[in-house]
């Protein structure tokens, strides 16, 4: 009785939006399923396509969290560029297009306990730290703030990351070219 009342109060509390929660739940379920498919499918190309679903789901979650610019960047960079790279990688390494029986290691079973251990620790730590923190819905973050931050206090890291990208691009070419 009391628990249901507190639960109802919690739901009715400021900032708890039931529609958002439902949306979050649906997207999260799809993402978890897709992520599991990525790591279990027997077909490399299918794995890449499931990864698109996960990445798209992450972008949707960003929208729910009010981070619109990050969501757009996620779509542009990940789904637009990184996935194309992955598909090229799959194509150039002549992976089997159909099902492949030995996509997993012989010792793949080792992954299950490690992953469960990890999950347990993380979930426990997260609930312990943020168990009752409520995110109030503030609407989308203005992109101006992000650009101001990048060209203001974060200018130096921004330049540094540009150089990292440049170096990675040059490095990738140097590593991958044929001579």
């Amino acid at each position: 009785m009391t628990t249901s009342i507190t639960g109802a109060m919690l739901l009715a509390a400021d900032g708890i939006n039931i529609a958002m929660n439902v949306g979050f739940g649906i997207i999260a379920a799809i993402m978890v399923f897709a992520a599991l498919s990525v790591v279990t499918t027997r077909n490399v190309v299918h794995g890449a396509l499931w990864l698109v679903v996960v990445l798209g789901g992450v972008a949707a979650q960003y929208l729910l969290a009010g981070a619109e610019f990050v969501a757009i960047s996620q779509v542009l960079v990940y789904i637009g560029a990184v996935m194309v790279l992955f598909l090229f990688g799959i194509m150039l390494t002549r992976a089997k297009i159909g099902a492949d029986t030995d996509l997993n290691n012989s010792s793949w079973g080792l992954g299950i306990p490690v992953a469960l251990l990890m999950l347990g620790v993380l979930v426990w730590a997260v609930i312990d730290a943020f168990g009752d923190t409520v995110i109030t819905d503030r609407g989308p973050t203005p992109t101006v703030e992000i650009s101001d931050a990048f060209l203001g206090p974060y200018l130096l890291p921004f330049l540094a990351i540009s150089f990292v990208l440049l170096a990675a691009a040059v490095g990738a070419i140097v590593i991958a070219r044929k001579d």
Binding site: V39, A95, N104, N105, G111, V114, A115, M118
Partner: peptide, 14 residues
């Protein structure tokens, strides 16, 4: 997601 990713890193051969 993190745990699933970790599982993938450990289990996958490709």
């Amino acid at each position: 997601l993190f745990s699933i990713g970790v599982f993938g890193v450990i289990a996958r051969r490709n």
